[in-house]
Simulated scan of single mutants.
Amino acid sequence: MDPTSSSSSSLRWRILRQALIHRSDSQSEAEIKRVSRKSTQGFNLIPCQVLDSSPESEDSREASLCYSIPIAASPKLYLTQRVDNCSDLNDFEISNRHNIDNTGLVCQWPSEEVLAYFCMSQPDRFRGKRVIELGSGYGLAGLVIAAATEASQVVISDGNPQVVNYIKRNIESNSMAFSNNTSVKAMELHWNQHELSELTNTFDIIVASDCTFFKEFHKDLASIIKVLLKANEPSEALFFSPKRGDSLDKFLKEIENVGLHYVLTEKYDEQVWKRHETLVKGDDESWPSYDKSHCYPLLIQITNYHK
C-alpha cells in the first residue's frame, strides 16, 4: 500500500468532516473522489436543471431543481432539496431520536432516478392504482408517478420528519402537474410502526429505491411490505437496489422469512442498461468510482404469490 495514500475509512471521515463544517480541503479532494460512490449526474435519465435559487426559501442550504419528464406532454417537476455537503449536527440528532438514517437529506440518489424513469416508462402498470413510495427522500419517483401515470393515489413516505417536510413542499409546488383523479400526499412512516390499521392491505403497488443498505432495518422493512400490500388481490412491490456486498441478499432472506416471494432482474430497461455499460467502461467521467455492485440497481419484484 502506498504510505502517502489515505485509507478508505479515513477518507470517509473526511467526507463527514467537510459536510459538518461546510469547508472543503483541496488537498484531499482527489482522494475523496476516489473513495466516494457519489455521482455528479447519476444515470442521467431524466434531464435536470439546477435553478439559481429556491423559489420557496432563501435558506442557503437549499436548492431548487427542475426535472423535465422525457415523455410527450408531461409537465416539469420542481423539487426543493438540500445542496450537497450541508448536513449539520441537528440532522444527526434528529436521526438518532427517530432511529433512522440521514441518507434522505444528503442528495438525490441515483437509484431513485432509475425508479422514477422505470415507473414513468410503464404508465399502464400504475393507472388507477393505489401506490406508496417507502424511504422516498425528496420524492422524485412518487412525484413522477403522480404526474405521468394516472395512479388513483400516491403516498410519498419517509421516516425522517425533516425529509417529510420537504416532500410536503414538493407536492405543493407541483400540485398543478397532477391529474384531478390522482390524490397525492406525504406521510411520515416508520417501518417498525405497529398501528397501521388504516394502511393495512391497502396498496396495489409499493415502490422504493436504495432502501436495503442498512441491515438493521431489513426485518422491519420486509414486514411492512407484507402489511401494506393488498392480500387478496394482485399486488407488488418494486424495489431498485444495488447488491452492496451481501446487504441485498440478506434483505431477500427476510422477504422469504415473512412469506413473500421475489423475482430479481438485472436487465430490465434498455436505456438504463446502456447507461450502465457506458459507466462500467469508464467512458463517462461524471462517475469516476462507478462500481456495479455498489451503484447499479437491480429490480426486485416482490409479491405475496409466485409469479
Score class of each variant (00 low, 15 high):
residue 152 S to D: 11
residue 152 S to T: 12
residue 155 V to Y: 00
residue 156 I to N: 05
residue 157 S to R: 04
residue 158 D to W: 00
residue 164 V to K: 05
residue 165 N to F: 02
residue 169 R to N: 15
residue 170 N to A: 11
residue 171 I to C: 06
residue 171 I to H: 10
residue 171 I to R: 07
residue 172 E to G: 10
residue 174 N to Q: 11
residue 176 M to T: 14
residue 177 A to T: 05
residue 181 N to I: 01
residue 182 T to R: 06
residue 182 T to S: 12
residue 184 V to I: 03
residue 186 A to L: 03
residue 186 A to D: 13
residue 188 E to C: 09
residue 189 L to Q: 08
residue 191 W to R: 03
residue 193 Q to K: 09
residue 197 S to R: 15
residue 197 S to H: 14
residue 198 E to V: 05
residue 198 E to C: 08
residue 198 E to A: 11
residue 203 F to M: 06
residue 204 D to I: 01
residue 205 I to Y: 00
residue 206 I to T: 09
residue 208 A to V: 04
residue 209 S to F: 07
residue 214 F to P: 00
residue 215 K to M: 12
residue 217 F to C: 07
residue 219 K to P: 02
residue 221 L to V: 01
residue 224 I to A: 00
residue 226 K to Q: 11
residue 226 K to H: 08
residue 227 V to H: 10
residue 228 L to K: 04
residue 228 L to D: 02
residue 229 L to F: 01
residue 229 L to M: 10
residue 232 N to M: 03
residue 233 E to I: 03
residue 234 P to N: 10
residue 237 A to V: 03
residue 237 A to F: 04
residue 239 F to M: 12
residue 240 F to W: 03
residue 242 P to G: 01
residue 243 K to N: 13
residue 244 R to H: 11
residue 245 G to H: 06
residue 249 D to M: 09
residue 249 D to I: 08
residue 250 K to Y: 07
residue 251 F to Y: 14
residue 254 E to Q: 15
residue 257 N to W: 00
residue 257 N to G: 04
residue 260 L to K: 03
